[in-house]
């Protein structure tokens, strides 16, 4: 059996890690009969007690608890990062990459959709076009695809409004994001009374 020379071993051949792993258990028959193991367990027991005390003190010491402002800052950022969604690749080169968050693009689409009379934007998902994830972007390349769900006023001409919305989304993504929208799929999932 190959022995890893980098792991500290007791005179009996056991690793110090094995002794540490069983420190919370009663000593085994081998440990009861082995001088090296008994000595190691005695030393490790002091270490275990010291770490337990430190852990307890840290939990009890109010001065070591983060201030609520710090906790709030961390939680606010954690929530913001979840809201941002995926980072979509927009440009890739040896010198670095540019990514744009799904939320950033969605906010542009929502602002365009909600400005159309009789349209309320709902869930929006953005996907990178499969053939444009690598390499510098070139003009005219389809970069992303958009799947947008909307609710429309009951009196709305749905085909006409959907086409108007599609053109609006394509032009807004070009103007405000700098990418090109290849496919813009619009699903009318609800009607609402005006």
């Amino acid at each position: 059996m190959a022995i890893d020379e980098t792991i500290p071993r007791l005179g009996c051949g056991r690793s110090i890690d094995e002794a540490w792993a069983g420190i919370k258990q009663p000593p085994t028959a081998h440990e009861n009969g082995c001088v090296q193991c008994r000595t190691a367990r005695a030393s490790l027991a002091k270490l275990a007690e010291a770490t337990r005390t430190l852990r307890y003190n840290d939990a009890e010491d109010a001065s070591l608890r983060p201030h609520h402002g710090v906790k709030d800052a961390i939680m606010n950022l954690a929530r913001a990062e979840v809201r941002r969604g995926n980072l979509l690749p927009a440009y890739q080169a040896d010198q670095g990459a540019i990514t744009i968050s799904e939320q950033a693009i969605t906010s542009v689409i929502w602002s365009g959709a909600d400005a159309l009379p009789g349209v309320r934007a709902r869930r929006c998902r953005i996907h990178p076009a499969p053939d444009t994830t690598d390499g510098p972007r070139s003009a005219g390349t389809a970069n992303i695809s958009v799947n947008l769900r909307i609710a429309v006023a009951s009196s709305t001409d749905i085909p006409g409004t959907a086409e108007l919305l599609r053109q609006r989304i394509i032009s807004m993504i070009t103007a405000h994001v700098g990418l090109n929208a290849g496919a813009v799929n619009i699903t009318v999932e609800d009607l609402y009374d005006v």
Binding site: R84, L87, A90, Y91, D94, Q95, G96, A97, I98, T99, I100, S101, Q103, A104, I105, S107, V108, H176, V177, G178
Partner: peptide, 30 residues
């Protein structure tokens, strides 16, 4: 905008005597 930031940062780093390496930009909000 991100492209311009990347290029400007590369120039700025060059002025310090360091070599610009990877400059990754993420646009998180518009």
């Amino acid at each position: 905008v991100a492209q311009a930031v990347r290029e400007q940062i590369a120039v700025t780093i060059s002025h310090t005597g360091l070599t610009p390496g990877r400059i990754d930009i993420s646009v998180l909000a518009i």
